[in-house]
């Protein structure tokens, strides 16, 4: 076993415009590595568990940074905007507090200062077996070490497992799925838009990648439509520690209410599925109901009706139900 924590020599490209970046991405393909704040990257590289030939550092490209309001009343956030900026931005804090609340719980202040929204969305899972650099399914191998008779899988999935049982570690991803954001993606061959919900990919579809980004593509920005602006939001992240920890379970919820009844709702959980997990059954059940404890108690079990527990993660079932209850309690 090699002893880790030493960076290998790796080429570094620092493009200052998006065209150069996409040209590099097209040329390097899977041998290139898009670099934002580096908070997910350097561990992989130092452990030599992933060995790209070259970094494409996106942090020097100005158009990838910043937060702008959109003509429709929504907001566009450049992928290289730091998590701290997302957490502190007045526009987001005014209209989309769900996202700022989620951003404030990312990692630690130091990591939020360095880490970018794009990086937070595209980061790889934290399954400890995978992070050791083991050749599991997600690394292109033939086995899952986590979901085995004695696997240590406290932090793993309740939903959407397919051979791999890893979960999304992102705090901001569930918020963006709840807000029905759209990802703007570009490459040398053109641009496309993908709904946040389709941007994140589970192992059934692609066991090697957690997003729909192709090797030559770059996430340019995230567009949040006006639809959920000023809705009623609820966010909670439960982790072992209050800082610098990944969610055991997190919940992002957005509600629209009229005359004391919920008219529309999006509830999305993190830490329970490889992708941000929509609680569709709950969403449907609460339409037309008042947002209160009684509704919460009545519907909370629907959050976990499709859950499959592993050796050590059954606690996520009551935890998810409780978070749904709290979201509805308000």
């Amino acid at each position: 076993m090699t002893s880790y924590d030493v960076m290998p020599a790796t080429e570094l490209y620092q493009p200052v415009n998006i065209e150069d970046a996409t040209a590099l991405a097209a040329r390097l393909g899977r041998k290139g590595w898009l670099l934002g704040g580096g908070q997910d990257t350097y561990g992989w590289l130092k452990d030599r568990a992933k060995r790209p030939d070259a970094f494409i550092d996106l942090t020097g490209i100005d158009v990838l940074k910043g937060i702008r309001s959109l003509p429709d009343g929504g907001v566009e956030i450049g992928s290289m905007t730091t998590i701290t900026e997302v957490a502190q931005n007045p526009l987001i804090n005014e209209k989309f507090t769900l996202l700022s609340a989620a951003a404030k719980t990312v990692a630690s202040p130091q990591i939020r200062n360095m880490g970018t929204l794009g990086g937070n969305l595209c980061q790889d899972t934290r399954c400890w077996y995978y992070r050791r650099g083991l050749n599991c399914y997600r690394a292109g191998g033939n086995i899952c070490y986590a979901d085995s008779p004695e696997g240590m899988n406290r932090e793993h999935a309740l939903f959407g497992a397919s051979r791999c049982v890893a979960v999304t570690p992102s705090d901001t991803a569930p918020a963006l799925v709840a807000l029905e954001a759209t990802m703007l993606i570009t490459s040398a061959s053109g641009s496309r838009q993908v709904a946040a919900e389709d941007f994140f990919v589970g192992p059934a579809t692609d066991i090697l990648n957690m997003t729909a980004l192709q090797a030559d593509e770059i996430l340019v920005s995230v567009r949040i439509p006006r639809k959920w602006a000023d809705a009623t939001f609820y966010h909670e992240k439960v982790a072992d520690r209050n800082v610098w920890d990944f969610a055991l379970v997190s919940l992002c919820a957005a509600f629209k209410e009229d005359a004391g009844q919920i008219t529309d709702a999006r509830l999305v959980a993190g830490g329970v599925d490889c992708v941000p997990h929509r609680l569709r059954e709950v969403e449907q059940a609460i339409i037309g109901q008042p947002r209160n404890e009684t509704t919460g108690e009545a519907v909370k079990v629907r959050a976990t009706s499709a859950a499959t527990t592993l050796n050590y993660n059954q606690f996520k079932v009551p935890l998810m139900q409780n978070l749904v209850l709290r979201a509805l309690r308000g």
Binding site: R154, V238, Y312, N313, Q314, F315, V317, P318, L319, N322
Partner: peptide, 17 residues
């Protein structure tokens, strides 16, 4: 005593370990 233990206890579930 970690959160999962407290949650299991409160929910009346057996502990996972």
């Amino acid at each position: 005593v970690t959160p999962d233990m407290i949650l299991n206890h409160v929910a009346g579930l057996p502990q996972s370990f």
